[in-house]
Design a protein around this nucleic acid. Sequence first.
RNA 1: GCGCCUGUGGCCCAACGGAUAGGGCAGCAGCCUCCGAAGCUGCUGGUGCAGGUUCAAUUCCUGCCAGGCGCACCA
Length: 562
Amino acid sequence: MSRDLLEGLLAQLLEKVLRERLRLPSEALAKIKPCLLEVPKEEAFGDISTSVALKLASILKRAPREIAQELAACLNQEIPRSDLSDLIEKIDIAGAGFVNFHFSREYLYSLLKEITRPKDSPLSYPKKQKKVLVEFVSANPTGPLSVAHGRQAVVGDALSNILEFLGYDVTREYYLNDWGNQINILGNSIYLRLKELQGEKIEFPEDHYQGEYIIDLARELLGAPEAGVAARFIAPTALEDCRQHGVKRILEIIRAELKDFRVRFDSWFSQAELEKSGDIDTAISFLKEKGFIYQQEGATWFSSTKFGDDKDRVVVKSDGSYTYLAPDIAYHQDKFKRGYDWLINLWGPDHHGYIPRLKAAVEALGRPRSALDVIIVQLATLHKEGQVVSMSTRKGEYITLREVMDEVGVDAARYFFVMRKTDSHLDFDLELAKKQSSENPVYYIQYAHARISNILANSGVPLDQLPEADATLLKEKEELELLKRIAKFEHNLKVVELQLDPYCLTVYLQELAESFHRFYDVHRVLVDDTCLKNSRLYLILGCKNIISLGLKLLGVQAPEKM
RNA sequence: GCGCCUGUGGCCCAACGGAUAGGGCAGCAGCCUCCGAAGCUGCUGGUGCAGGUUCAAUUCCUGCCAGGCGCACCA
């Protein structure tokens, strides 16, 4: 039985006991129903626990501990005659009035079996009907990806992996800002550099792209094999050529960076094509029909305040051009038209003020606000030798994702980017990420995997012939702890789904690796007793499967040797 | 000025309103005749300040202090 199912049954039973045995009024029950069960913060407090006794104390005007005792007594009667009889070993009362449930060893073994020698992949979830579009990175194609994009890329990629694993139909999309002001500036930047290369004295504007790569792009154009290139750049099409060349080449660079960073995209959505399609006018007309669009001071406004925004927003400026919001509304309408019912957008912190207006747009388009989740990915601060590495996009002085990848490696970079809560600042210590020692959390986890691989290789037992563990032999404290950690994996995936944040998976993997290292230190796997040896091999194989699956979901490699 | 986020040991981070505030790093003291010491064990040390709500506050509310971000007919 999956952990999910068990929790569901336990919640049902608990509810039944509260209603029938403790005679809890239905309104009180409704009040506490959303939080019947929780996972205790310390493992000593059991595998699942409930604090309903505490919550009911003020409602029932009774001491929490007393309620807990009555509850536990009732559960002790009910559980043996329910489907949970073999799964829950014991119930105890602790602290101010917690009722803690301990899984039986048989149940822990049954979970281990699901992941140790699976036919295809360890654990599998039924396909869900929900179509999810995860939009992330979406950096303007005006320069190489920065560290900030790197964090977004990993978080988006890992989150997509996990949702996919949980059965969602996930598409990863990059919104390509290949149209508008920034692109014009890019084109002009290249154009000016080109002139410069040809010996012309130019004054390079401050708001143009300052980076070295612009000169490289200009040089490419200059050295292009076609005859008479130089002549072309005084032609009327020169600026347009620069623009096109710039976007094309930078996009190639970005794609290569993402590929090398093991970030997969399924779809690239071009703003330029959206602009040409006429869909933006269609979207505005759609909102107009619904009465959410009005004219004022020569501009066209979206009455986003009707949906909780601070003020109404301009969609068409008085000069007739669109604001950024207009194509964005059309873009999100397009997402819905393509059949996605859950949109997840990852944005940088500078866009957080933009959330209410896009949520308003979603509602105006006739969808619930909850159809759009925006995840703000906070910036990462790079540290090197105790110093903060300063960055200024303006001067083109920023650390690129490529540099970080090259310096610390893809595994460490990916792990470091997700190991903190996504919406909090991240301190990225370049030296630490490079260290191949215990200080580096990536290696700690990978080392556990490599150690297990080594034992399995040394065992001489072909894995496809490894018999199931003898449940009664795995009884040492460290064995049971490892078993419990393995059994907690699914719960952690659920937390990722709920919080839309892959970071807690890194915490889990760290804990799992810790359990293994502790077990390894105290007990030998390759012992003379064949039954015990096989049982332990079975256990560590399960652990290995979960480590490798967990790392795979994060896009980090699980090496057999290090 | 207004809005959002963040203040937890020397450093980086945890904790659906609940249990003795967890963990990592650094520091100190130990552990390899044995499957990889990239490991294990132990010790030291903490909720910005002031109120309030609650049986219970790191968590919720108010004020203050400190830091980050945002407040466009920019993208």
